[in-house]
Design a binder for these strands. Sequence first.
DNA 1: GGTGAGCTTCTTTAC
DNA 2: GAAGCTCACC
Length: 660
Amino acid sequence: MSSMNAPQREAVMYTQGPLLVLAGAGSGKTRVITEKIAHLIASGQREAKHIAAITFTNKAAKEMRERVAKRVKGDAAEGLTISTFHALGLRFLQQEAARAGLKRGFSVFDSDDQMGIVKDLLPAGTKNDVLERLRGLVSRAKNEALTPEQAAELAKSAVEREAAKLYEKYQARLAAFNAVDFDDLIRLPVLMLEADADFAAAWRERIRYLLVDECQDTNGAQYRLLKQLAGPRGAFTCVGDDDQSIYAWRGAQPENLELLGSDYPNLKVVKLEQNYRCASRILRLANTLIANNPHANPKTLWSDQREGEKIKVWRCENNEHEADRVAAEIDYLNKAKEIPFADFAILFRGNHQSRALEKSLQMLRIPYHLTGGTAFLDRAEVKDALGWLRLIANPEDDAAFLRAITTPARGIGGTSLARLAELAQQHHMPMDRAARQLSILKQLQPRIAAAVSEFTGIVDRLRDEAESVAAPALVRSLVERSGMLDALRAQTKDKAGFERRRANLEELADWFDGPKSAIGDLAAQMALLTHADRGEPGNAVRLMSLHGSKGLEFRAVFLVGLEDGTLPHEASMEEGRLEEERRLLYVGITRAKEHLVLSHSLEAKRWGDTLRLQPSRFLAELPQGDLARDGADPEAEAESKKARGRAHLAAMAALFDKPK
DNA sequence: GGTGAGCTTCTTTAC
DNA sequence: GAAGCTCACC
């Protein structure tokens, strides 16, 4: 506390009314939030159980919980809520399920399930991009907590009217499945709180102080939830930075920061402008870049850190060459400067860019930890197991039913399932129940009916087991009894592949090894876990998207793929949405404490043919005197040649002592 | 009618 | 470079 600067201290101490903290990158905002929680508790102003802090990711929530735990004595932090908006919404709905019109054990649909419904509701053969566009529009309306009627009224084009119609049918389908989607986790609580003042007041009795991090990335629905929970008195602290707003594409409204001022006239604003993270040169780079964006309330981020070395800009032949150079440089810095692997991050625009990097890192035996993309939770076997769990918890979840009954394959194909679905619909019952009706089974082929009954028998036994057994054991049992494991063994040709998948399922079981809540609640929570939340990365280089890097910091940062079309992304260029892309680069640059490398390739292979790439236009916006460019600087060139030589040698060495 | 092999399609970002 | 789709085979 004593080591804080004046505005930080002010942000911590001010609890009399609504507060907005405009916090630049690296200005210690997480610290302010944790200190403030500690202060609220220690000063006796609020009990921990009446405080809720909202973070942007589960991972950030976990980190914050750990920091608060260290800061607060004994069990004073007991009952404190630190979670994402979505996790808070889920908890809300689980507690208020009946009021929300949900039955216990309801499912949370991810975007795949969502897409499944959309596909089902639209004519067969509708193009993928049309489906995606409509799904996006429905989601957009829900992110504003609009009803289907409101969405229809506000529709400005034919496609938006179509989306509004789809929205209505989509909700009916969700309801039939006793399911909600991600957007509902915010939307439903908002509608419920807004509809009933007493109900809202009761919730405000439980949450008496609210802290919201990354406020610039809240969408309309989240902002309304904030207002409902904070109430007219405005017992909240919001922290945000409009320069780090990078989620407009999923409905975030950075103007919510300004809206706070008009919704709460007594709003106090504190600015944190001293950066404690980056070397001065890195900060100058970031400031110069972001000055190209228009600013309503300009702020000046400054730092009294040392100047730091020049920022390297690498021009590479292609992304393999780029990846080799990155790996070689990490290897070199790790050995020569003893920078631990965990202090390195490689950041990119799209998750697919990680592939080449992984290959190069493996070649040099550099441990790495990849977050995001088609990681753990998107693995087929993991989704299958989760589908089973969902079905066990929620018999009305047809999506889960379909997933479970087809994994492993048990001789029931699309035609039969379509028939069963049709019969279920005729009888107005979920498939799980229909599959147990004798009259319905009779209308299927005898062979199919037998297979269906065998399946429902397994489900029944697992439901019984769920009553008595802990979650991890249930997962193991389900993997066994469903026949998944045997099928997996038979399918995978190599033993290693099978073991990997089995390990994934084992890991899934371990994930449930948390506090003892009902299986159904856990299955719903699983849907919220992000790829970024997975496992302990240990001492490994971090690979992640620029979006995923928000809020983190590293001694050395490599920003790869700085080409026009990659960053800024093609689609953003076409739509003239360059500002958010610029902010994305800004976020990336400000992750670095000491070392920063910006690299781009001259060529890329894009399905089949090679295309020439131009360096990112953002490179030209940087202060050129602070850059050490390939070619322009003979010293850097020589260094890069040496690095390549080292990489080659290391790779050769690695080849020779390959472990079995 | 179900299943697996081989084809094509498309690649932002994520709660 | 993987997931989705079609088609031929069982």
